[in-house]
Design a protein around this nucleic acid. Structure first.
Lengths: 246, 246
DNA sequence: CATCGTATTTGATGCTTATCAAGCGGAGTT
DNA sequence: AACTCCGCTTGATAAGCATCAAATACGATG
């Protein structure tokens, strides 16, 4: 147990909630696998780590060797450019995978920071590749997850490239709502785990603009905001805002 | 040879320039493979297709079953949103792979259009997966290519989210220049295959802004533009522009 | 070689969002 | 309960880019 000295936040009891028994299995990596494949995944993912709010799961430049699945909590990833520019590249909820961007250079290009107390499953990537060589459906699923990441980044590109502030924020809220729904939470009421500044960074806006648009939405009866607590009152109207300027 | 009837633009002579003998092999999928693996790739990639300027390689909604490697020419991909918004998501030069975004839903989410007369190698994806199950280094390489796409999309997100028009265009020109260099062309003189509008769409700017910034760069002696012909006169200065606002 | 349509350039104006600044509010601490 | 810090809100102003409009250049076509 010498590892415990270097990495004190190991989960001693990983098997207690193996992939095969995880309630996130339909959202996460195990989705669609046979019970046989699931068992193999269980043998692969033996380490989980806890993070307090504000702690880093990894930092830009850290060597890449694992993917991380959000088991509990909420993360942001942000890219720190060589010129000092800092941009949030994503928010990550339970069942979502982080770290795929590290494969290409064997280094993580971004930081991953817990926005609340959180827990990650550590997925050694070489072993995942090894496993997927013998399990076509796992292989395909991994490819789909990577492809989904590409698609979602491209839809953010579209958002940033062609939407105005109100549209961006409406799209952002609807996206969160939809992801909450997929996790069995209310589609219309949730807590934002990130600051206005982080939302702004992700959406290519300044924090003041985010705040102003929230206020405007509130005045128009679309949402009710109180600090980080959001209630979405009129989803159809938000949808029309997203598809507005064309 | 019944296939010839349905797909008239097959290359009858695919083996003449198999991956193993292709002069793009160091840029493209074969990069880093053993000669054994290369041979297997050769057996996989038997179809190449020619496209006249303006023709589509695939369209949004088309079923996904292959990746496409640009063997000659130049492509754009663009996303057509449900609200009618149209955004260029990428430009693709020789040796680059298109279609990775189709894996996630088994449908291409975007159109791929030839911006000049071009040629693509068709890579059946299921067979590529099959092959990569037996060839770890091919598998890893495929994963790296997908990851690289994620990274590059994220750097476009940063560009769109935090750069001003001049910085975006400087970054765009430097990116093209660097990719031309990697292909053995001049880093400082090339033809733009896309219109100002397509550049603008990719960079989140209007075509007039693209034109104005080009003119400004020209007045400042950074570049010489004449329609689609670009000469970059001061690469270091362009670099300082990219890293300006921080 | 003339014509036509499209791409590009350039100018004038207005909208959107950034910037700067000040005040407010809530969570945690003493 | 008062204090303090940090995140948030709101207002005033300015910068940057979009929009509208017109003129020009270029390539394709007959």
């Amino acid at each position: 147990m010498t590892e415990l000295k270097t990495v004190p936040n190991y989960d001693h009891d990983a098997l207690r909630s193996a992939c095969s028994k995880c309630n996130l299995r339909e959202l996460c990596l195990p989705s669609g696998l046979s019970s046989d494949e699931l068992e193999q995944l269980d043998s692969l993912i033996r380490v989980r780590r806890f993070y307090r709010k504000g702690e880093h799961a990894y930092r830009a430049g850290d060597p890449f060797d694992s993917l991380y699945a959000v088991r509990a909590g909420f993360f942001k990833t942000n890219l720190l450019n060589e010129d000092g520019r800092d941009q949030v590249t994503g928010f990550h909820m339970t069942g979502e995978l982080m770290g795929l961007d590290g494969i290409s250079t064997d280094q993580h290009p971004c930081d991953a920071v817990a926005l609340e107390d959180s827990e990650l499953c550590v997925i050694p990537f070489s072993r995942l590749e090894e496993l997927s060589r013998g399990a076509p459906s796992l292989q395909r699923h991994l490819h789909k997850i990577m492809s989904r990441e590409i698609v979602s980044d491209q839809s953010v590109m579209m958002l940033l490239g062609s939407m105005r502030a109100e549209e961006r924020l409406a799209a952002f809220l609807l996206n969160l709502s939809q992801r909450m729904t997929a996790r069995g939470y209310s589609p219309s009421e949730f807590y934002l785990r990130m600051t206005r500044e982080e939302i702004g960074s992700y959406l290519g806006l300044k924090l003041e603009t985010v705040s102003r648009v929230f206020s405007r939405f509130q005045n128009e009866g679309l949402i009710a905001v109180q600090q980080k607590h959001i209630r979405i009152l009129n989803i159809p109207k938000l949808r029309t805002i997203v598809g507005q300027s064309c």
